[in-house]
Amino acid sequence: MKNNSSFAKWFGYLGFDHFIAPFLIKLIYWVGVLVIVSAGIGGFFATFEMPERGIGGVLLTLVATVLSLLLWRLMCELLILAFNIYARLVEIRNLLSHRQERMDAYRKVPSVRALNNE
């Protein structure tokens, strides 16, 4: 039974029913975090080689690293948000179609008045 659900899941990816982009965005996010932190550490140690920058250069490097991490996170969240909105809309569509099917089934049942008139 597990093979059928696993096959269905992979078929969903091949048929574009499920997206791989959110996973890739998360992977790219973590690579970006590593790059930003590495650049921040490099910039931090580079300011010690330039005595004219002083403590202001060190603080500027730290603030720039933190702001870069924050903006990177925000950009990645916005990309993932688009896919989450789509997923919620699909859920709403499915719920509404099930509701419509139940309403149609309810309408097909004859009422008591209709039975008494016959």
Rank of each mutant, 00 (worst) to 15 (best):
M1C: 09
M1E: 08
K2C: 05
K2H: 03
N3K: 04
N3A: 13
N4G: 08
S5R: 09
F7P: 00
A8V: 10
A8M: 10
A8T: 06
A8D: 13
A8R: 10
W10P: 03
F11Y: 01
F11P: 00
G12K: 05
Y13K: 13
L14H: 08
L14M: 14
G15M: 09
F16I: 12
D17Q: 15
D17N: 15
F19D: 13
I20V: 06
I20M: 10
A21N: 06
P22V: 04
P22G: 09
L24V: 10
I25R: 05
I28S: 03
W30I: 10
V31I: 13
V31F: 10
V33P: 05
V33K: 02
V33T: 10
L34K: 02
S38F: 02
S38L: 01
G40H: 01
F45L: 02
F45Q: 04
F45C: 05
A46I: 00
A46T: 00
T47A: 06
T47G: 01
E49V: 07
E49Q: 10
M50S: 03
P51Y: 13
P51W: 04
E52P: 04
R53C: 00
R53G: 00
G54H: 07
G54Y: 02
I55W: 05
I55E: 05
G56W: 08
V58Q: 04
V58A: 04
L60V: 01
L60Y: 01
T61S: 04
T61C: 05
T61D: 04
L62V: 08
V63K: 03
A64M: 01
S68M: 07
S68C: 07
L70C: 12
L71S: 09
L71K: 07
L74N: 08
M75G: 13
C76H: 12
L78M: 14
L79C: 07
L79N: 04
L81F: 10
A82T: 08
F83A: 06
F83M: 07
I85D: 08
Y86I: 14
L89I: 08
V90I: 14
R93E: 12
R93N: 08
R93T: 11
N94V: 11
L95P: 00
S97W: 03
H98V: 11
R102P: 00
D104A: 11
D104N: 12
A105G: 12
Y106S: 12
R107S: 15
R107P: 10
K108V: 10
K108R: 15
V109K: 15
V109S: 15
V109C: 12
P110F: 14
P110T: 14
R113L: 14
R113C: 13
A114S: 15
A114C: 15
L115H: 15
N116S: 13
N116L: 15
N117M: 11
N117K: 14
N117Y: 09
E118Q: 14
